[in-house]
Amino acid sequence: MTETELIDRIQAGDKAACAACVELHAPAVYRLALRMLGSPEEAEDAMQETFLNAFRAIESFEGRAGLATWLYRIANNVVLMRLRKRQPLFVPIDLHGAAGDGEDAAVTPVQLFDWCCLPEEDFATTEAQGELERAIGELPLPLRQVFVLRELEGLSTEETAQTLELTPANVKVRLHRARLWLRERLADYFTELATEKAHG
């Protein structure tokens, strides 16, 4: 079944088509919600809300974006609403403009220890992976939105821009800042690890 056929059938109220859509796209919506919200319970609630909203609004789906991009956009809005409820003062209402929490934060490299020299097994530990997951969870929100879609979900720059209603140039700038931010954050951990190893 092509995506157009799937959408036609969902719009006609075909429950089997709705189920096929859920089966196809729920894992990605769940991953996005989990990376953004950090809690499996909240991610599940956000996923349910996303599909409820999507099927309610399916009549208005015009197919300008792909179905996956459209669902990511709904999921992103659901996630933002939940984050805003959690921390109303820290989640700006409009994240689409040039400014936003963390958007303007200068990410000038200050960590200049070359931790690449650590043995490969030190990067593959559960602790190191946990540190990386924590760092991603702490990325400033406008950077995390772009980072998760572009780097972890594998959307193209254009798809990410469409989903978040940004320009492709803005996506690239935010992604670059996210990478620099993560580098700084990981340097704390890996520099300490390398220093500990050097001192026995």
Partner: peptide
């Protein structure tokens, strides 16, 4: 070098599974 390593590291992260 460390930026390139950072990118390589997060690309090896396993995606979280939906229960």
């Amino acid at each position: 070098d460390t930026l390139s390593k950072t990118v390589a590291l997060y690309h090896t992260l396993p995606p979280p599974d939906m229960p």
